[in-house]
């Protein structure tokens, strides 16, 4: 599988105290572990992104633990308060230990 590709939507600027909506997507099959290989009849092992974290200036704002029931190409949207200018860091952790990440800058006016 190609390297998972994330996509995030965060406003570039915000007023202090504003509650921002953040939307995230990442390409991933989210192999549930329940599916069988059509040719061999063997179960395809589970391989999902099991953890999503959003931190701002190094401090965790929001996180989610995902189970195999999360759809392929997982979508997650949530909120964060604009307190100061800085960097959002988004990380997705795969069952195989790989970590995919993306950052976004926010300027608070």
């Amino acid at each position: 599988m190609a390297k998972p590709k994330p996509r995030v939507k965060v406003p570039k600027t915000a007023a202090k105290g504003e509650v921002l909506e953040i939307k995230t997507l990442i390409t991933h099959k989210m192999e549930s572990g329940q599916r069988k290989d059509k040719k061999t009849g063997e179960k395809i092992p589970q391989k999902i992104i099991n953890k999503f974290v959003c931190a701002f200036n190094g401090k965790e704002v929001f996180s989610a633990d995902w189970h195999p029931a999360i759809s392929a190409n997982p979508f997650m949207s949530f909120y964060a308060v604009a307190t100061e200018s800085g960097t959002f860091e988004f990380t997705w952790t795969d069952d195989d230990g790989s970590v995919y990440s993306k950052t976004a800058q926010l300027t608070v006016e």
Partner: peptide, 19 residues
């Protein structure tokens, strides 16, 4: 899923898609 909020979220609201 388990969704973990902090006061820095401002709003305890989240969306995802499931099987």
């Amino acid at each position: 899923a388990s969704i973990n909020f902090t006061p820095a979220c401002g709003k305890a609201k989240a969306s995802t898609r499931m099987r």
